[in-house]
């Protein structure tokens, strides 16, 4: 089959092309009947590499969802550039390889779980045998085989979230955008979703994830960005972010080996045991709270002001 020549089709992404590129993104809302402009996102920049899991964290109203909507083309940027696999996210073509799970999703209540997946599959251009194969596979993956024939109207919140995740990946996208995927889901369901994200990561899918469950972000994400009042205040690799380099304790440089032995002796004399020594770490939660207070955080990683 001859391929159509078009600016979109010719943009074949390679490994160097980031899954998502956000550069100087600004989004200002102007509510109707109001002159006051509301900036939701200000000069935001980040990139998500292929196969990378990126956590977008921030308090409510910080601009996470708006950023995701711009990436998905649901909202237009006021200024700046957003690309998905090298294609402007305003173009329909950019969504060919994207799956999205919105926060607290609802689906057509009249459809069953199976019909929902078939509906979204067909929208993505999957038909026939391919779809018949894919739908049970997804239902098994999210553990909804037994509820597949029931109307969505009777689904619990956790089930909705899982069917939402299944529809997001129905067409095997290379990027999955998850907005609060575990919001309102019980710990078991939450763990299931986390496992699915880890599975996607293992298969090389890029994931953008926003969550309030920072522990979960810490568990699954390679990198994370903290947004506050529409700005990126902190961004970097999780390892780096959680490493408190300026508050190193028990770190002695150039000290004689006797010193270490002496410390160990002191510990043993007190009837205790020295398990490890090295760089101490903070928790992501602590980091998050510190970052979103109106004061200068003092941590490693890249600063964005």
């Amino acid at each position: 089959m001859e391929r159509r020549k078009s600016s979109e089709s010719l943009q074949v992404p390679n490994e160097a092309t980031p899954a998502v590129l956000v550069e100087h993104l600004t989004k200002v809302f102007q509510p109707s009947l109001s002159r006051q402009k509301v900036p939701a996102v200000v000069d935001l920049s980040f990139r998500v590499g292929q196969g990378e899991v990126y956590g977008l964290i921030g308090p409510n109203g910080s601009g996470k969802s708006t950023t995701m909507k711009v990436i998905l083309g649901l909202v237009q940027a006021t200024s700046g550039r957003t690309e998905v696999f090298g294609i402007d996210s305003g173009k329909v073509g950019s969504r060919r390889d994207v799956g999205f799970l919105p926060e607290n999703p609802y689906f057509y209540k009249h459809m069953t779980g199976r019909e929902t997946l078939e509906f979204y599959g067909k929208l993505c251009g999957i038909h026939g045998a391919q779809l018949r194969e894919r739908v049970p596979e997804l239902l098994a993956l999210v553990g909804l085989e037994s509820a597949a024939g029931r109307p969505i109207a009777g689904y619990s919140k956790g089930m909705l979230q899982r069917i939402g995740l299944a529809q997001a990946i129905v067409h095997r996208p290379r990027l999955v955008v998850l907005d609060e995927p575990t919001a309102g889901v019980d710990p078991r369901g939450s763990r299931h979703i986390r496992d699915l994200i880890l599975q996607m990561k293992a298969e090389g899918t890029s994931v953008i994830l926003s969550s309030h469950l920072l522990e979960q972000v810490q568990e699954v994400c390679d990198r994370a960005g903290i947004i506050y009042k529409g700005r990126m205040v902190l961004e970097g690799r999780l390892e780096d972010l959680t490493q408190l380099q300026q508050q190193m304790e028990y770190v002695v440089e150039g000290g004689p080996p006797e010193l270490a032995a002496e410390i160990q002796t002191l510990v043993e004399r007190a009837g205790a045991k020295l398990v490890s020594a090295g760089h101490p770490r903070t928790t992501l939660e602590k980091l998050f709270l510190e970052s979103t207070e109106d004061k200068e955080p003092a941590t490693g990683g890249t600063r964005h002001d």
Binding site: G125, L141, V176, Q199
Partner: peptide, 23 residues
């Protein structure tokens, strides 16, 4: 083994920017 997101023949090879009667 069930794959979350791996497989052959990704759907995006279909030229989807055109208005599709099927959709």
């Amino acid at each position: 083994e069930t794959h979350a997101n791996a497989g052959t023949a990704p759907a995006h090879v279909v030229p989807v920017w055109e208005v599709s009667p099927i959709r």
